[in-house]
Computed example of a mutant assay.
Amino acid sequence: MSVTDDKTTSASFSAEAARRAVELARQTLQIEADAILALKSRLRDDSAEPLAQAVQAVLQCQGRTVVSGIGKSGHIGRKIAATLASTGSPSLFMHPAEASHGDLGMVTPKDVFIAISNSGETAELLAIVPIIKRMGAVIIAMTGNDDSSLARMAAVHLNVGVAKEACTLNLAPTASTTATLAMGDALAVSLLDARGFLEEDFARSHPGGALGRRLLTHVRDVMRSGEAIPAVRPDVSLSAALMEITRKGMAMTAVVDEQFRPIGVFTDGDLRRLLERGQDFTSFSIAEVMHAQPQSINQDRLAVDAVQLMEQFRINQLLVTDAEGVLTGALHIHDLTRAKVI
């Protein structure tokens, strides 16, 4: 039946067809899982293991890791290059066909070149790998055949061969691409660990992501400062303090000493609780009703630490100080929400 046959677009999908689809899905997942486990069993626990040699080559690389492949191997190569780049190993993808028409200038003698081909006989790669090798770059091949042309040319060969493809025709790259991707991830993770790559390093490569914001945003970046800080002296009246709360719009005010160090805090919640007592508080000074020893955070701490403090003490505002304990800012939970730290 032709793929354009009207029957292929029929809305009918029998129960038997559904069962077959699920069974084929299970078989596909099992075949691909087996392919990855087979890769694991091939790895030897010694310095002669090709993966260890590949890690060493990339670690010693003074340039970048250039990844190349065509077709499905190219798609996998792009992902491997992206993973390497985001985990501390400067990397880029180069299309092998475009390389023959000028893009080969991307490669330098200081680079490591990873050539990906399941057969190891991809013509576009075989046309450029000898040139790159003469240039002096280290060649790492990822193929499914130890005796392939690419494997023989490479300084390091990572065998990603599979027993069979998950495709029912044993033709479409499925298990082989999964195995290659997994080997690329194994290489990237091994390099990440060898470099001592930390969360902070990862965040610097992902400043636009949630993790980047959490690990790169400091309290000083999001706090309210200068005239926006609600602050009064302890001898002012409660009425004057309420005016400060209203002007600054943070639903609280800090109470500071002569050195502008916080000695107390008074919030809208405190005011409500005071009103519930039914007392005449018009003659009170703020020092009589404030909370002494307020919670605060250093301006150089991460904003995510401020979130944790607020959650711990169930508060919506936090005072910010410098190393000398001087009030330099104030944070509201909304400031952290706007900065997408939460």
Rank of each mutant, 00 (worst) to 15 (best):
A141E: 07
A292P: 15
F284K: 02
D185R: 13
V304Y: 15
L150Y: 12
L150T: 00
Q62M: 10
Q56H: 14
V232A: 08
H101S: 02
T143C: 14
Q308H: 04
T9R: 15
E199F: 07
G102W: 06
E227P: 15
D257S: 10
A292K: 06
M243L: 12
M135W: 11
P109C: 10
V304T: 15
S12V: 15
P234K: 04
L327M: 06
A82H: 13
F197G: 06
I128T: 08
A99V: 04
V138P: 12
G102A: 08
V265H: 00
G161R: 01
R301S: 12
D221R: 09
V307Y: 15
K133N: 08
S10A: 11
S296N: 14
L29C: 14
I263E: 02
P130N: 03
T217F: 13
A166Y: 04
N145T: 11
D322E: 03
V112F: 09
I342E: 13
T337F: 15
D201M: 11
L125Q: 00
L84Q: 04
A127Q: 05
D221P: 07
M135G: 04
I31Y: 08
S89G: 06
T9S: 08
I128W: 03
D185M: 14
R213S: 11
R247K: 08
F202R: 07
R261W: 04
V222T: 13
G136A: 02
V222E: 01
V219Q: 00
G226T: 00
I140A: 10
A115S: 08
L158K: 01
R195W: 07
S100T: 15
S283N: 10
L238M: 01
A163T: 13
L59R: 10
R261F: 09
L318Y: 05
G278K: 03
A179T: 11
A203W: 00
V107H: 06
V156K: 01
N316R: 13
E244Q: 12
E32M: 12
A81L: 03
T9Q: 12
N316D: 14
L336R: 05
A127L: 08
P230S: 07
E23F: 11
P90M: 10
A228P: 05
V265E: 07
S296E: 08
A175E: 04
A151P: 09
D201W: 01
L327Y: 03
Q30A: 10
M94K: 02
L327G: 12
C61N: 06
T337N: 15
